Computed example of a mutant assay.
Amino acid sequence: MGVLCGGPLRGAWDRACDRCFRLFPCLSDPARRSALSLKLALVMLHLVFAGVVFVLDNDLIQKTRQEPWYTVSYVILFVATLVQYFVTSGTSPGFVLEAQKAIDERDALERRTLLASKQPASSKNGSVFITVDRTNYQRGNASAWTKLVMDLYPPGSSPRNLTCTYCNVIQPPRAKHCHDCDKCVLQFDHHCVWLGTCIGQGNHCRFWWYICEETALCIWTSILYITYLKSNISRAWWADVIIILLLVALLISLIFLLLLLLFHSYLIMTNQTTYELVRRRRIVYLRAIPERVYPFSKGICRNLYLFCCAAQSSSKYRMEALPSAEELEEKTRPYKCSDVLSCRCCC
Rank of each mutant, 00 (worst) to 15 (best):
F78Q: 03
W13F: 08
C26P: 02
V132H: 07
G11A: 12
C205M: 01
T197Q: 06
F296H: 04
N203G: 08
L9N: 13
R174F: 00
I289D: 00
L82H: 11
E320P: 00
S265F: 03
A31M: 00
K124P: 00
Y74E: 11
A35H: 07
F95W: 04
R10W: 06
A239H: 14
I283W: 01
A216T: 01
P159I: 08
L250C: 02
C5Q: 13
T81G: 13
Y317V: 08
I219Y: 06
L40K: 10
K147Q: 11
P154M: 04
V278D: 05
L38C: 12
L114P: 00
K230R: 12
R206M: 09
R33T: 07
E213M: 12
Y85N: 15
I76M: 03
S253C: 09
T270E: 01
N271Q: 09
P120V: 00
F21C: 01
T197M: 00
A311C: 10
I130V: 10
P155S: 14
L328A: 07
C343D: 11
T332M: 04
A116H: 06
L77Q: 05
Y266V: 14
A175Q: 04
N303M: 05
Y70D: 10
L259Y: 15
C181W: 02
L245P: 10
L45T: 15
K147W: 00
F78S: 08
W69C: 11
L328T: 01
G140S: 14
D59A: 13
S265T: 10
C218S: 03
K39M: 14
N168K: 14
T113A: 03
P334Q: 09
E98A: 07
N203W: 01
V248S: 14
L115W: 02
P155Q: 06
S158Y: 03
S324V: 09
R279M: 13
S313N: 05
W194C: 13
L341C: 13
S234Y: 07
D339E: 13
N58Q: 08
D189G: 12
Q119F: 02
S314C: 08
Q66P: 03
A102I: 05
C301K: 13
L23W: 05
A142M: 10
K183Y: 03
E214D: 11
L258M: 11
L250D: 05
W220K: 05
G126A: 08
A325D: 07
T332A: 06
W13T: 15
A116Y: 04
F24W: 06
I211A: 02
V284R: 12
N168I: 06
T146C: 05
Q66A: 12
Q272T: 14
S297I: 06
Y225D: 00
C346M: 10
C181R: 08
S157V: 07
I61M: 10
C178G: 01
T273F: 00
L258R: 02
S342E: 10
R106T: 02
A116F: 01
T135G: 06
Q171A: 14
S34Y: 07
C301F: 04
T113V: 01
V96I: 02
Q138P: 01
